[in-house]
């Protein structure tokens, strides 16, 4: 089974969960040990406090109005953490996922997660260094999936972590100009980042119960987080478009991207909650 190589961690987590349950929750009569359930992550894209709607502008703190036409990104290496800090690491070779705003691909579905009560989650934005091919399994070619979602780089070899494109206006340009932000690592800078998020309520994983963790992704943070990156300042020499695909900006965007995610709420219980 897929959990073999993290079994020790998983068992430890199960054992702890089991012990704490049996003392507190005897009345429920739940069986946790050696049972598994699923977990869903729902990535709900927003922009500066509102929903992200492709084709509809939002204004950032630099007074630039961005109209997003495309937002796809890779999330990976999911970890569930219980109250005692025990970590359940989802099998790495199956832990790469894509979200696509246009196609409404927003859900990450983890299967066969040890039953337990999870208090926090950790995941990565992009693909970690030297692990490019680990999303390749007998069932799925991650490269093909990424390529189909415009999330590969082929002139330099690897994955785009975030593709964020559209048009913008600014105090300096009233006419909309194209922008393209392609975030990723290159052979000089590792721009993969991880975030750890505490859950506002426990995610209960049980056989037949699939908690759904509802995240809000504020895409505005990519350029308008701790570090401010003005699109107008990044116009090409001809002044016709802004393309951010390398250099210092990628490091800044990587750090900004860790501010992008918040867990809004958690649904517990049976069945699917989104889609």
């Amino acid at each position: 089974m897929k959990f073999n190589y993290i079994k020790t961690v998983a068992l430890a987590a199960i054992a702890t969960a089991f012990i704490s349950c049996s003392s507190d929750d005897d009345a429920t009569g739940e069986v946790i040990g050696d049972t598994y359930g699923d977990v869903e992550f729902y990535f709900d894209n927003g922009a500066a406090g509102n929903s992200l709607i492709l084709g509809v502008p939002f204004t950032n703190s630099m007074d630039e109005a961005l109209t997003v036409n495309k937002l796809n990104y890779i999330v990976s290496n999911f970890v569930l953490i219980d109250a005692d800090g025990n970590e359940v690491v989802y099998p790495k070779e199956e832990s790469y996922f894509i979200t696509n705003q246009q196609d409404e691909v927003k859900t990450v579905h983890l299967e066969n997660v040890p039953a337990g009560d999870y208090k926090a989650v950790r995941f990565g934005i992009g693909v970690d260094e030297q692990r490019y091919l680990q999303g390749e399994t007998a069932q799925q070619s991650f490269w093909d999936l990424a390529a189909a979602n415009d999330l590969t780089w082929t002139w330099s070899t690897g994955y785009r972590f975030v593709v964020f494109e559209g048009t913008f206006t600014s105090p300096e340009n009233a006419e909309p100009l194209l922008f393209k932000v392609h975030q990723g690592s290159n052979t000089e800078t590792d721009n993969y980042r991880e975030v750890t998020l505490t859950l506002p309520t426990t995610a209960r994983v049980r056989e037949g119960e699939t908690p759904s963790i509802h995240l809000i992704t504020d895409v505005n943070k990519l350029l308008d987080g701790e570090t401010k990156i003005s699109l107008h300042d990044n116009l090409n020499q001809a002044g016709t478009a802004a393309a951010i695909m390398g250099g210092e900006n990628l490091i800044k965007i990587a750090d900004n991207s860790t501010e992008m995610f918040t867990v809004d709420h958690v649904h517990n219980g049976a069945g699917h909650h989104h889609e």
Binding site: S141, W143, D144, T154, S156
Partner: peptide, 29 residues
């Protein structure tokens, strides 16, 4: 220019380069 640093990934560059092989991995498959 160090477009790749992984032996298992480097073939992507010449395969996709429009003036070299101008193909995609998906289509080769």
């Amino acid at each position: 220019d160090g477009a790749s640093d992984a032996i298992d990934m480097l073939s992507i560059a010449p395969i996709h380069n429009p003036v070299e092989m101008d193909e995609t991995l998906e289509n080769i498959a």
